[in-house]
Amino acid sequence: MSIREVTLHRMVMTLKNPFATSFGTFKEKEFYVIEMEDDTGCIGFGESVAFSSPWYSEETVETNKHMMEKFLIPLLLQDPIQHPNEVSERFKSIRRNNMAKSALEGAVWDLYAKRNNSPLYQVLGGNKQQIDVGISIGIQPSAKDLLHVVEGFVIEGYKRMKIKIKPGSDYQMLKEVRKHFPDTLLMADANSAYTLQDIETLKKLDELGLMMIEQPLEHDDIIDHAKLQSQLTTPICLDESIHSLEDARKAIELGSCKIINIKIGRVGGITESKKIHDYCAEQGISVWCGGMLEAGIGRAHNIALTTLPQFNLPGDTAASSRYWEKDIIDPEVSVYNGVIHVPNKPGIGYEVDRKVMESLRVEKLVFSQTNPVSQ
């Protein structure tokens, strides 16, 4: 498969409601849609997930642009590709920058599936016609506000509530939720807001019967997480600490976690995500697919990945309407009683709504085999 042209559409979408975490509050999402055309005219789409500022990781929208424009797209255009698995190998000479790599690799996977007239999830080896999904809830001003939000999502049928926490907004808030929703699956997401000095607070969470606590300690740590996990009955889930199969292997061997959140962008693409999934299946480690406030294209890639068998916990891929007044795909991602029905159309299974996309686009860059620099 010879890639003829790559187009980067820089997008800005406003969230319906601000989304607060321990490292910042988001009111809009800036990202790139990657449009990739082969020599037959077939088109695949990918989406970048880095934020505008380096809160979650060192990558940003601007660094993604630089890496794709100056390094990754020229590598992608230089030779034909037989299979999407080759993309990560081709990018191997470029260190890190996983979100930039993933954005382009995702478009290759969509293109490859469409060329083969197959749904992406089948190409990946997925075996589910529907997936269970949970919801991620940002930090709320009060317990009353949090209970109101949780109640709404329980009524909608979401299978699991992920509640963002930070010091001073943790145990008491979660205790109130557990009191009012004793049978609801709950987890906490700390986004690296704690240290081992907070161990007594974190141990109190064991009272609440949580599914897991996600990334309580430093974003690059696996040693202290092992120390913490040895003192908690609540499973630790690692997120920011896992960037590769090797990271996952070391964390599991050390006993740093019992669950891993696989985010396609964080680990560098679908190929690496599958490797982590397969290893976790061998080790009996549960995995689930986390979210990065994606628009529809990124959301569709998450859905396809989640059809793999070891994704046995509800992920964060909520309905499009949870975040956007109007998404950039048609139909939008819909959730019915906590379930997403996996589309069976070729590729990601959703059509890109070009009219909506163009109305939200703030920049367009085009790269081709004959001119591998932006036009």
Rank of each mutant, 00 (worst) to 15 (best):
S169N: 14
D132M: 13
H9E: 05
I155K: 15
T317N: 10
I34W: 00
A143L: 01
Q197P: 00
W324E: 05
T14S: 13
S93H: 11
Q231D: 05
E363D: 13
D327Q: 07
D220M: 01
L104R: 05
T63N: 15
R4M: 04
H341L: 13
H219D: 14
D239H: 04
S136K: 12
Q310I: 13
K162A: 02
N17S: 15
T21C: 06
K258T: 06
L210C: 08
H341P: 07
Y279E: 04
D239F: 02
R115D: 09
L146Q: 04
V149Y: 08
I155H: 14
I155W: 07
L293R: 01
I163N: 01
F367N: 03
L254I: 03
P119I: 05
A319I: 08
L8Q: 03
K114D: 02
H219F: 12
S192F: 08
G291V: 13
L120H: 05
R249F: 07
T370C: 07
N302E: 12
N116Q: 11
K263A: 08
G298Q: 03
A319C: 06
I137E: 03
S169F: 12
K101P: 09
C280Q: 03
G338C: 02
I276K: 05
L205Y: 08
S334P: 00
H301F: 08
Y323T: 10
I34H: 01
K345T: 15
G338A: 00
F19V: 08
K159M: 02
F311L: 07
I297A: 03
D316R: 04
G134D: 01
F367A: 01
K275V: 06
S52C: 00
K250S: 15
L360I: 08
V342H: 06
L254G: 08
M68C: 08
N85C: 05
K144G: 11
V6Y: 00
E37M: 13
L360D: 08
L15A: 03
H341V: 15
G338W: 01
L202W: 10
E282C: 03
D132L: 11
I270F: 02
E332V: 11
E363V: 02
R322S: 10
P84V: 09
M357P: 03
Q369I: 13
I139D: 04
Q215T: 07
T271G: 01
K162N: 10
A188N: 06
G268K: 11
Q310H: 14
A295D: 06
Y171R: 03
N312V: 11
T201M: 15
N64R: 04
A319P: 09
T25S: 11
A226M: 00
S230A: 14
S53M: 11
E332C: 11
L75W: 05
K128E: 00
G296M: 12
T21D: 04
T317Y: 00
K16R: 15
